[in-house]
Amino acid sequence: MKPTTAFTTLCLFFVSLLGVFAQLASALPVNGKRDVFVPPVLYPHNGTVWKKGQRHNVTWDTSNAPAQITNAIGEIRLAQAGEPIFPVILATGFSILDGRIEVEVPWVATASDYSVVLFGDSGNFSPAFTIEGPSIFDGDE
C-alpha cells in the first residue's frame, strides 16, 4: 500500500466517523418541551371566490402560539374538496408565526370548492371556498 493511499484511507475513515457522530447528535432529544401548533385559518372562508391570477393573503390566527413550536416552517397547499392529495404548493418556507402569506391563485380546470391547507406542525384546513375556472371568453385555452 502506498503512503498516499494509506493517508487517503485514514482521512476517509475519520470523515465517516465524523458523519456517524453528527448523525447521533441530531438524534438527541431537544431540551425543553415543544408543542404542536394548529392555528385556525381565517381567510379564505366560506363564501370567498378566487379567480385565476389574483393574489390573496391567506391568513391564520397566531394568538395562541406556544413558546416552543415543533415545526415553525410553514407550507400552504391547495386541496380540492373530497380529494386526499394536495399536490399544488401555493407557498413554502415562511414562518408559521407570520399569520399571513400572499399567494397567487393557480389555474384550475373546473370551478369547484377548494380549501387551503396550512402545514407546519400539522395540517389545518380552511373552510371551503370557490375558485372559478377559466372562461371561454377570457382568452385562456
Rank of each mutant, 00 (worst) to 15 (best):
10 L>A: 14
53 G>I: 03
23 Q>K: 03
129 F>I: 11
93 G>S: 12
123 G>H: 10
101 I>S: 04
28 L>K: 13
46 N>I: 09
79 A>I: 02
28 L>D: 07
40 P>K: 01
47 G>R: 04
27 A>I: 08
132 E>Y: 02
110 T>Q: 14
48 T>E: 07
83 E>H: 08
69 I>C: 10
112 S>F: 15
17 L>W: 03
74 G>K: 02
61 D>A: 08
20 V>R: 02
85 I>Q: 04
87 P>N: 09
51 K>E: 06
96 I>D: 01
31 N>R: 03
81 A>E: 11
70 T>A: 10
52 K>Q: 09
14 F>Q: 03
134 P>H: 11
15 V>E: 01
24 L>V: 09
17 L>Y: 04
43 Y>A: 10
71 N>G: 01
140 D>Y: 09
132 E>D: 07
121 D>E: 12
128 A>G: 06
41 V>G: 00
18 L>A: 10
16 S>Q: 10
104 E>W: 01
131 I>L: 12
95 S>G: 09
124 N>V: 15
75 E>T: 14
38 V>W: 01
64 N>L: 07
107 W>S: 13
95 S>D: 15
109 A>D: 13
108 V>F: 12
110 T>D: 12
117 V>F: 09
34 R>F: 15
85 I>V: 14
30 V>K: 07
90 L>S: 13
101 I>C: 00
103 V>C: 04
130 T>D: 03
13 F>Y: 06
54 Q>V: 05
4 T>M: 06
7 F>Q: 09
65 A>M: 12
8 T>C: 13
25 A>W: 06
62 T>L: 12
93 G>T: 09
124 N>D: 05
64 N>M: 02
44 P>M: 04
44 P>L: 07
74 G>P: 04
13 F>R: 04
140 D>L: 11
59 T>F: 05
109 A>I: 09
91 A>D: 05
133 G>W: 00
129 F>Q: 09
45 H>D: 11
36 V>W: 00
39 P>Q: 00
105 V>E: 03
104 E>Q: 15
120 G>Y: 07
108 V>E: 13
21 F>K: 05
106 P>R: 10
120 G>W: 09
91 A>Y: 08
69 I>W: 05
77 R>Y: 05
113 D>Q: 15
36 V>T: 13
125 F>H: 05
5 T>D: 14
1 M>G: 13
40 P>Q: 06
3 P>D: 11
52 K>Y: 12
17 L>K: 07
62 T>W: 08
113 D>R: 14
129 F>V: 14
100 R>Q: 10
7 F>W: 03
111 A>Y: 01
78 L>M: 03
3 P>C: 11
81 A>T: 11
58 V>K: 01
